[in-house]
């Protein structure tokens, strides 16, 4: 088994999470034949599995991605950036020329693509392992699954692992930074928790620590399948039902932070398009 790791527009967090599997890393170290972060190989050889981290933002990255697809038997979208656009995808809110102009104030030698795309826009993907980053436990399980040919899916939402219970209440404002009650569902306490629309498998580490789920694992099967299910409509609906509060989000983009350029969220009811339209027309999205 030969494993390669390729990095595009990303933060390397997924690779670090892979290193954080500690013992598992030492176990598979000799199988990793290409990984510029930890090894000196300069050319990606033919591999059984190539993990691609990061979204596609520049023409250079697109070439790297295409080469990876050619050399890989199985190509894995490793992390939310590469599976769904992730945080890198947020750059798509603005026109590339505008990004460069506002940040650098002059032209550079390199060209950006129009959006920061998830990799499946350009190549066929065999597995998606979303998460920002996927937890070391998920990564270990996935690698084991690849090695013995049985990859386990997580088709349930974060709520199913959370352990907090819903209490029907009446609130009158959204909470952001306060310390929540440790047993009660964060949504019913007025925190914007994305657990109910987000793919599980992370063991709800965030909500267990009293932090609302930010949706880093991307949409659940159900959200992907149903054309009329969307993050904002679902959250709005739930908060209204269990907390009797008609919430108005003043920063819509942050709720979609990890899924900006994914096909899976390309729905009629989604407000992603509206955000992007606004940003590209020169407004503040």
């Amino acid at each position: 088994m030969k494993i390669g790791i390729v990095k595009l527009a990303s933060c390397s967090g997924c690779q670090i999470a892979l290193l954080d599997t500690h013992e598992k890393l030492l176990e598979i170290a000799d199988k990793v034949v290409y990984a510029p972060l930890i090894k000196d190989a300069r050319e990606l050889p033919d591999c059984d599995v190539v993990l691609v981290e990061g979204a596609v933002r520049t023409e250079h990255e697109l070439e790297v991605l295409k080469r990876a697809r050619e050399r890989a038997k199985k190509l894995v979208a490793f992390g939310s950036c590469s599976a769904l656009g992730g945080i890198s995808g947020m750059g798509s809110i603005y026109k590339p020329e505008k990004l460069i102009e506002d940040i650098y104030g002059r032209d550079l030698d390199y060209k950006l693509l129009d959006f920061a795309y998830p990799i499946d826009r350009f190549v066929e993907v065999d597995y998606y392992l979303p998460g920002c980053p996927p937890t070391p436990e998920l990564i270990s399980k996935f690698i084991d699954g690849i090695l013995n040919g049985r990859v386990e899916r997580h088709d349930y939402p974060v709520c199913a692992e959370c352990g907090r219970l819903v209490v029907h209440t009446k609130i009158d404002n959204i909470k952001k930074t306060e310390l929540p009650d440790p047993k009660v569902c964060l949504l019913s306490q007025g925190y914007v928790c994305l657990g109910s629309v987000t793919r599980g498998g992370c063991r709800a580490i965030c909500t267990k620590a009293g932090v609302p789920c930010r949706g880093c694992r991307g949409p659940t099967d159900k959200v992907m399948v149903m054309p009329c299910k969307d993050y904002l409509t679902e959250l709005h609906d739930r908060i209204e039902r269990i907390a009797g509060f008609d919430v108005k989000f003043n920063d819509v983009a942050s709720i979609y932070a990890f899924v900006f350029t994914s096909d899976m969220m390309d729905k009629l009811v989604s407000r992603i398009k509206e955000v992007i339209r606004k940003g590209r027309r020169g407004g503040r999205a």
Partner: peptide, 24 residues
């Protein structure tokens, strides 16, 4: 050779999300 554009897309973000985004 890489670029993402945080300084620009942070504009418009609500304060409670900023540390979560900049971590990335």
């Amino acid at each position: 050779l890489e670029f993402r554009g945080f300084e620009k897309f942070l504009e418009g973000r609500s304060f409670e999300f900023v540390p979560m985004i900049t971590a990335r």
